[in-house]
Design a binder for these strands. Structure first.
Lengths: 201, 201, 201, 201
DNA sequence: AATGAATGAGGCTTCATTCAT
DNA sequence: GATGAATGAAGCCTCATTCAT
């Protein structure tokens, strides 16, 4: 009963609870969508009371925006960290491809939420601004490779989207059990996607 | 070809109102998602009273399932009709690719709804059973091409998904204005996707 | 095509349809109550279209009032017809009792509707005015019997209600299968109800 | 017995709101029937918001079933508590009769709801199972009295129903103002109902 | 007269959010 | 901070009634 301000030793208790909320929300949104998920459902999944959510987020929309930004940043940082700036285009594509596969397998729901769900109706301006960071990065990578004569001519965005779309299709089919993503399949897919954009004799 | 007015004698055929509902629902669902769309919103966009929707569909869920099946069937029939059974693999891929592009451009919202939205939380068993018809067809096409030695070895489903995913990525980027899908881009993309699966010397 | 007014021979077609509606309504109301019954349900049970009901009754409330009056009158007339004005009180009670049993068995749903359902919330003034006709008649019968010294002293309405309530309880229990209403039981019940009000030495 | 204020410290016990809902529902159902009562009406009469009802009952049907069981149990316990197991039949009938009158006068709406309303269309199996508890008890009482030679021969259920029906008729007529239920009337009615089943020399 | 599609107010229920504890 | 009961607006759906055919 030492007055009002106890010298709290543990620094991260509040962050832990916030993370629990975001994780629960992620699972709910992936399974039922944003509008199909009730806030008390998220609270129950996070093991807290409904009202507690409103100590960490002012609204359901703020929560989904925080969730979106968290993972959008996470994946971008993860891929860019893996990127070898001085490698050949083939090496760069390979590194980025592998990073994305690694990320998607490690954070399935986050990947599904970020890449497979339409967010337009509830994202705010700041979130929307982040939407194309990774794709712009990919397009720039393609553009450089075109300059070096390793990659087909044409709109970099188009070539990049073909590869990125192929990647998403692969992951989705894997998760749906339509094929098993083993080492051989990863190598095959990576090579196939390189062939997609590569300049063939 | 008498200018603008088609030979439509009766103003309200029996299925006309049902179609108007499905069209309004399609637009709403694409913009705001199934759970984000209120039934009166669909009614208003269809130009009818809310209650009228329930003369054509027993529930909102039945409506979205009817919508899903209608377009899933439509696209499958459209693609399969364009498929040349006796063509070379290259010709077959080309024909299917062009049919899909044509369909997507002609029925943008239907394509977006069918291919870009997650439906698991509201589709019923019968709808889910249709989910992979087209993809199975594509995988069979790939398998035949593998047998003829024109296409890379590996799980047909994987190769098909790479191409299908690339196609989806292309259409989405086009609609988002990230590049313009002109004749040259179509030819480029088609060739690139053939390269994705083709067996390169 | 003889102009507008065909010389219709059949006199009672419209009445037949009206009766069909009232019969269907009676069944529905007994099973689910007035507010628990939808007008289209009555129409379907009557084998006609929903709109047709509104050619015979201006509203659902008017329909239920017509139904109430029809049967209330029917039962009152039936009982009063059976009443022997010059009989002894015992004979009168017996005659009325038997008439009521006969009516209830012949028109079960009508009896249940009239006597076992609370109507206050939808009956209009004219219907409510009929409510106690039969009971007033019964009370008068009791009063006369009191005057002759055959029946206990006390409020005629009370004695009459004891008998009438016993009668209703008997019929309900019979229909619920709690006992079988054979000849012996009818005789027993009639005597018991006479004992209820009779002046015992 | 300290005048008017019972020892109620906390103003809002946990079950107090639930009870307020049930009381409001009872009044509404008695006046307008189950289907004729809107949930917001119950809420308004209970002095709470509509949504609050759904914290205490999962549905309107669950609410009416809870209400039915509450009072059905209450009345059964009340009557059985008053029952003198070792008394003569005449004493037993008298005790039960007086208990029922006392209960009906103290809880008019509960009595009306339980005994005067048809519930078939919304009661669930568990509620229906309670329906005849009290009547079975009454029939057993009659049967014992028959064994002792104090009561007429015949189906116990029939005799019991005659008395129970008479009781209901009496209460209804009293509440409708058709006679005043004073001490003399109670004594008269009780004796009359004993005469109904008693074996007369 | 008969039909049944259409209407829209109103019913049951859910749910984002608040607030007293 | 944490709780969860309470709120009431809004969502899905029903239904009494109308009206063009």
């Amino acid at each position: 009963m030492r007055a009002t301000k106890p010298t709290r030793a543990r620094p991260s208790a509040p962050t832990e609870k916030r993370d629990a909320i975001l994780e629960a929300a992620l699972d709910c949104f992936v399974e039922q969508g944003f509008h199909g998920t009730a806030v008390p459902e998220v609270a129950k999944r996070a093991g807290i009371a409904t009202g507690t959510i409103y100590h960490y987020f002012p609204s359901k929309e703020a929560m989904v925006n925080a969730l979106y930004r968290k993972w959008k940043e996470h994946i971008a940082r993860f891929v860019m960290t893996a990127f070898p700036p001085s490698g050949t285009p083939r090496e760069q594509v390979s590194a980025v491809w592998r990073a994305m596969v690694e990320f998607a397998l490690a954070h399935r729901n986050a990947f599904v939420f970020i890449e497979l769900h339409p967010h337009r109706s509830y994202l705010d301006g700041e979130s929307l601004a982040m939407e194309h960071r990774l794709k712009d990065f990919g397009a720039a990578m393609v553009k450089r490779a075109q300059g070096l004569g390793h990659v087909k001519a044409g709109p970099p965005a188009l070539l990049m989207e073909l590869v990125f779309g192929a990647f998403i299709g692969m992951m989705r089919a894997h998760w749906e059990g339509r094929f098993a993503l083993g080492d051989e399949e990863r190598a095959l897919a990576e090579q196939a996607c390189w062939d997609t954009i590569a300049l063939h004799a």
